[in-house]
Protein backbone atom coordinates (compact mmCIF):
# COMPACT_ATOMS: atom_id res chain seq x y z
CA UNK A 1 0.00 0.00 0.00
CA UNK A 2 1.24 3.52 -0.71
CA UNK A 3 2.70 5.41 2.20
CA UNK A 4 2.26 9.12 2.62
CA UNK A 5 3.81 11.49 5.06
CA UNK A 6 2.01 14.59 6.27
CA UNK A 7 3.06 17.37 8.53
CA UNK A 8 0.24 18.35 10.89
CA UNK A 9 0.45 21.21 13.33
CA UNK A 10 -0.30 19.26 16.52
CA UNK A 11 0.62 20.77 19.85
CA UNK A 12 -0.66 18.30 22.40
CA UNK A 13 -2.12 14.87 22.97
CA UNK A 14 -5.62 16.24 22.46
CA UNK A 15 -4.61 17.30 18.97
CA UNK A 16 -3.15 13.91 18.06
CA UNK A 17 -6.21 12.16 19.52
CA UNK A 18 -8.39 14.32 17.30
CA UNK A 19 -6.31 13.31 14.27
CA UNK A 20 -6.62 9.65 15.29
CA UNK A 21 -10.39 9.93 15.51
CA UNK A 22 -10.95 11.58 12.13
CA UNK A 23 -8.61 9.12 10.40
CA UNK A 24 -10.33 6.15 12.01
CA UNK A 25 -13.66 7.45 10.77
CA UNK A 26 -12.35 7.36 7.21
CA UNK A 27 -11.59 3.69 7.65
CA UNK A 28 -9.42 1.32 5.61
CA UNK A 29 -6.33 3.02 6.87
CA UNK A 30 -3.19 2.48 8.90
CA UNK A 31 -1.18 5.29 10.36
CA UNK A 32 1.41 6.35 12.85
CA UNK A 33 1.48 9.65 14.65
CA UNK A 34 4.74 11.21 15.68
CA UNK A 35 3.71 13.99 18.04
CA UNK A 36 7.12 15.50 18.85
CA UNK A 37 7.94 15.87 15.15
CA UNK A 38 4.37 16.79 14.17
CA UNK A 39 4.31 14.09 11.53
CA UNK A 40 1.58 11.68 10.50
CA UNK A 41 2.56 8.71 8.39
CA UNK A 42 -0.38 7.12 6.61
CA UNK A 43 -0.60 3.76 4.90
CA UNK A 44 -3.71 3.76 2.73
CA UNK A 45 -5.31 3.32 -0.68
CA UNK A 46 -7.08 6.64 -0.30
CA UNK A 47 -5.82 9.46 -2.49
CA UNK A 48 -3.59 12.17 -1.06
CA UNK A 49 -6.38 14.69 -1.60
CA UNK A 50 -8.86 12.61 0.39
CA UNK A 51 -6.38 12.20 3.23
CA UNK A 52 -5.59 15.87 3.15
CA UNK A 53 -9.29 16.79 3.38
CA UNK A 54 -9.71 14.46 6.34
CA UNK A 55 -6.72 15.85 8.19
CA UNK A 56 -7.89 19.40 7.55
CA UNK A 57 -11.19 18.63 9.28
CA UNK A 58 -9.37 18.94 12.57
CA UNK A 59 -8.84 22.62 11.77
CA UNK A 60 -5.06 22.32 11.93
CA UNK A 61 -2.48 23.33 9.39
CA UNK A 62 -1.65 20.35 7.20
CA UNK A 63 1.07 20.01 4.59
CA UNK A 64 1.91 17.04 2.42
CA UNK A 65 5.52 16.04 2.88
CA UNK A 66 5.60 13.31 0.24
CA UNK A 67 5.54 9.57 -0.28
CA UNK A 68 7.64 7.47 1.99
Amino acid sequence: MPKHEFSVDMTCEGCSNAVTRVLNKLGDIQFEIDLPNKKVCIDSEHSVDALMETLKKTGKTVTYVGPK
Binding site: T11, C12, E13, G14, C15, N17, A18, R21, T58, G59, K60
Partner: peptide
Amino acid sequence: EGMTCSSCVWTI
Protein backbone atom coordinates in the same frame (compact mmCIF):
# COMPACT_ATOMS: atom_id res chain seq x y z
CA GLU B 1 -14.39 15.65 25.68
CA GLY B 2 -10.85 15.27 24.52
CA MET B 3 -9.58 18.81 24.76
CA THR B 4 -6.36 18.98 26.68
CA CYS B 5 -4.85 22.36 25.98
CA SER B 6 -5.68 25.87 24.92
CA SER B 7 -4.67 25.04 21.37
CA CYS B 8 -7.56 22.55 21.12
CA VAL B 9 -9.91 25.22 22.48
CA TRP B 10 -8.63 27.76 20.00
CA THR B 11 -9.07 25.43 17.01
CA ILE B 12 -12.67 24.66 17.97
